[in-house]
Design a protein around this nucleic acid. Structure first.
Lengths: 214, 214, 214, 214
DNA sequence: AGGTAAGCGAGACGGTACGTCGTGTCTTGGT
DNA sequence: ACCAAGACACGACGTACCGTCTCGCTTACCT
């Protein structure tokens, strides 16, 4: 998840082990600070104080503000699920509303945009964001698509490269960018709420469009 | 445009007038600094030095980094145009590619996300972004839509609130969020390029979807 | 008095003449600012505002804080007089008390020490202080001495250089340094008041000492 | 000595202790800066740079320029001694010349007047000056006086309040103000050197005067 | 009477220093 | 080893004054 001690593989033999409580307290404190102060107002020292932890402990685990915040908000995105509501339309509407609910949380709104902004100048950060957040959401698209195919709502995957260039991977990426992009843009840029009505209209548009590109 | 010089209504009579050269030099320097250093690395002092201007001159006109950067990148969005390419499909593809080209510029990518992130905790900033950037782009959607209606590609506006809740304003907002959101998300989050192929596929999806929500 | 327009010799023919009111208002404002803010807190801009005058007007007349303050407090020292109280002892006690009363005024205390401090690194300033303040006080010593000689309390001037090196000029300087130094030191450094009792004891000491060096 | 490190009473147990080297380097740098730039030209940032120290380290220990300079020059006054030269006249001449030599050092001249000037508006600073500088010198007067009494050059202390109001403490204060005041005034205000001849004449005057006030 | 040259209030300008704050590193002593 | 505490070098912050510079006006003297 983060790099300080890649607990998975390496082995530590001696000395006092790191406090697991500290990790949770720090990430919790980070989210709280994001809510109250926003990205620009968040400071490492403040997070440490809130978590009841020394700054040293923070830096022992994360390289800086960016990395810390990515991890702190990544767990929020794990809450997204794709319940089987019986139809593709219902499934998409459901995930759209879940995603909108997530972006309604101040810590998520702020952090997401900020780390994306920083990642435009930091390739390692972009990689980390992709692993921790983006790819996890993209699974939902893949899953929903497969489910719809099993239901017969969508045709099975065609050959690797279809006649008009829309192979499977391209299509998944497109769907993902349209859904995530539209919800994010409406919420954060346009500043309008994503409610059930909007979700239905949007989903109708998306499904109508999907039929057109096949 | 910005508040330091309330050119619109009030009038100051006495004292040395503010240098117009300084304004241009500062905004230019801001864009240059964004390219080189990114949002996080941009410093008011550095911008002042690049512009050959004192820090006080900067603060006399803009309240801080956020406001300055909004104004600095706003002019970039004025370059977007909607040439008449003869069909709605072609018009949309064109504007999608223009927008993608804009987001390929480092100062635009970085600045846009960063100020949006800050705006989640600053209502005044959000207002400023909307006026300086968002509303200016939304005009393109309105214009393209009207043109398509004149061509007969889209039906004329229905009653204020249609049977399925998609009145004119709602539809414009939806189109705007889908176009801008998808392009931004693909460029900055997914990190994939927006080329002519993607633009065509995306536009096909959008137009197919528009037919469905009518 | 000050350099902006050396009214004595040169001649200006044309243009609007300088406002004499402004001079008085500025010096008055300078003294008021000294009282309220002290040397360190006094600023040219504040003096200008208090005097209802533009900063330009200030700088047209004085080169800076130092010069301005010297002129502002110099007039205070002109108030010192040497009334004939009938005996040298009474004359000295009187002038000691006058000088102490002057140093009780905050603007005088602050300004005197501060400009002396600055003058340790600025020969021109030292010259100005000597002309505007020091030499004016030394006259009192010369006058008092001559008066005492006429009364027969002190012997007439000896040859230019006496047997033990105490010629007239040396003696005047010594008396001046002892009187002014002791009063200033007691008031500003020791922080004790100079009252009639102290003045009498000090004067007794001085006269006793003067008899010894003859 | 100064307030940042309340070594006297309180105790701090945890955390990295303050560097003692930094203290010395800072005071040394302060004196050097005073010599080169004078009081008005001395800046905290410059002192920090010279001392190879961060500005924050400076402010952690001293509240400002005034406090710093008082401590920086206080040590100079500790160098004053009262060697036993066999007679009161010789002892006084010696200490007068020592004090004059001290005031010949640029850092001492500048700093002493400047902090006294500031102290006219800052009671805490005046207290600090008294503790760090004035009281330390006054000991010399007390010591010299006692020695002279042992030699029989001065009568033993009389009752707490003598017939003409010159009890012991009053006399010591008077002697101190006359010596220090005269030397300072001649050096800094009159701008004349204090040489052996002047010291002898002045001391003769002082001793003659002392006989008179008894 | 008109011209012209300087004075004037206002305030923007390029600078410099301020004193504070945040960063990321380091040194303590205690567990 | 790890931890809490906190000092440290560094560098940006936003503010305050500095002394200079335009502005658009008076205000006086000199043709």
């Amino acid at each position: 998840m983060h790099n300080g001690t890649p607990n998975g593989t390496s082995a530590k033999k001696t000395g006092r082990p790191r406090s697991a409580d500290a990790d949770h307290a720090i990430l919790e404190a980070t989210r709280a600070a994001l809510v109250e102060l926003g990205w620009g107002g968040l400071t490492m020292g403040d997070v440490a104080t809130r978590a009841g932890v020394a700054k040293t402990t923070l830096y022992r685990r994360w390289a800086g503000k960016n990395e810390l915040v990515v991890d702190a908000v990544a767990v929020l995105f794990d809450e997204l699920e794709l319940p089987d509501r019986g139809s593709l339309q219902a499934d998409i509407e459901d995930v759209v509303l879940q995603f909108a609910a997530l972006l309604a949380r101040p810590e998520a709104r702020t952090a997401l945009m900020a780390v994306v902004a920083e990642s435009t100048h930091d390739e390692a950060l972009r990689q980390r964001i992709r692993e921790a957040i983006v790819d996890r959401q993209k699974c939902l698209v893949v899953l929903g698509r497969r489910r719809a195919q099993e239901r017969g709502e969508l045709p099975p995957d065609g050959p690797p490269l279809g006649p008009d260039g829309t192979d499977t991977a391209t299509q998944i990426d497109l769907i993902f960018d349209v859904i995530a992009g539209a919800v994010v843009h409406r919420t954060l840029v346009s500043g309008e709420p994503v409610d059930a009505t909007w979700a239905r209209t949007f989903t109708t548009l998306l499904l109508g469009g999907l039929a057109a590109i096949r």
